[in-house]
Every structure is written in structure tokens, then in C-alpha cells.
Simulated scan of single mutants.
Amino acid sequence: MAMSGGSEDGEPMMEMNTTPLIDVMLVLLIMFIITIPIQTHAVKVDLPVNDPNAVKPPVDPIKNKIAIDATGATTWNGAPVNEQLLRQYLDQSAAMTPEPELQFQPDPQARYEVVDATLAIIKRSNVTKLGFVGNEQYYKDF
């Protein structure tokens, strides 16, 4: 066992007893852990404040939607626009990197001339990401 001698009882013990050394090492480790100072440094982060009165930019960097209702009124992200303002928004959108997606949704009752004129404005603005939204409403017509 731990106190046994060599092969014969009269020989000196050749192995060192490491149990007290391990006990001392564990006590010192616990003492060092207890005496380590608490880390009190902090990283200061200025988070943006959500202002409900803030004006949302007219050109969204992710996606924008042009809709034409049955009366022929054109809207950009829900706000009514005329041809000049639509051209400005499309130019701003085409200049962004990466270019935001443009969704086009005409009403089924909208006049073809208005839809065609709006598509011509979109084509002249060199928009490359154009998608048609709401085509499922026409599936019974064809």
C-alpha cells in the first residue's frame, strides 16, 4: 500500500509520496482563484435610439415597391409619386450598391397605357433587379 517498503521489509522506500504536494498545489490554486481581481472593464456602445418621428428615407436599401391602382395612381412604397419623382427614386435606387430589389405591382383594373408608361420609365432608369408581384391574380384570365 502507500506505506509499504521495497521488496523486503528492511530496504528504504524509493517512491516519493506526492499526496501532500498535490494537496498544497490545490490549496494554492484555490487561493490564486480567490485573489484574482474581478474584471471591471466595459465596452461602451452607443446604440441608436428609435425615434418615432424620424423621417424614413424614400428609397429603401433592401426593396422598393411600385404599385399602380385601378385609377392609375402610381405609388412608391405606399407614397404617391409623379413621373419626375419616380425617375429620381429609380436613379437613387440604381446607384446603390448592392442595388435594391424593385417590385412592380399593377392593379388588374389599371389602364395599360399607365402600366406601359411606368415600365418604360423603369427600363430607362437601368434597374436590373425587377420583379412582378401579384401575378397569381391573373391565373384565371389565361
Results as ranks from 00 to 15, higher is better:
I122N: 01
I30G: 06
V127A: 04
G72W: 05
Q39S: 09
P98Y: 03
N53Q: 11
I33M: 12
A95I: 06
G134Y: 04
P100F: 06
P58G: 09
P37Q: 11
V133A: 02
D46V: 05
R111W: 00
E83A: 15
T71Y: 03
L21N: 08
T128Q: 07
Y139S: 15
A117S: 07
L21D: 13
N64C: 07
I34L: 12
A73M: 08
M13R: 13
Y89S: 03
T19Q: 11
P100V: 00
G78R: 05
Q109A: 15
N53D: 09
T75K: 09
Y89P: 00
I30E: 05
P12W: 14
N64D: 05
E136Q: 08
E8S: 14
Q105A: 08
I66L: 09
V45D: 14
P108E: 10
L90H: 01
P61Y: 10
L47W: 09
A54D: 13
G131V: 09
N77T: 04
S93A: 13
M31E: 04
P108N: 01
F132H: 07
T19G: 13
P100S: 05
V115G: 05
P61H: 07
M16I: 14
V43P: 06
N17F: 07
V133M: 07
Q84H: 13
N53T: 12
D9K: 08
T128L: 00
G131L: 09
N126Q: 11
D51H: 14
Q137M: 12
D141G: 11
V43S: 14
A42F: 06
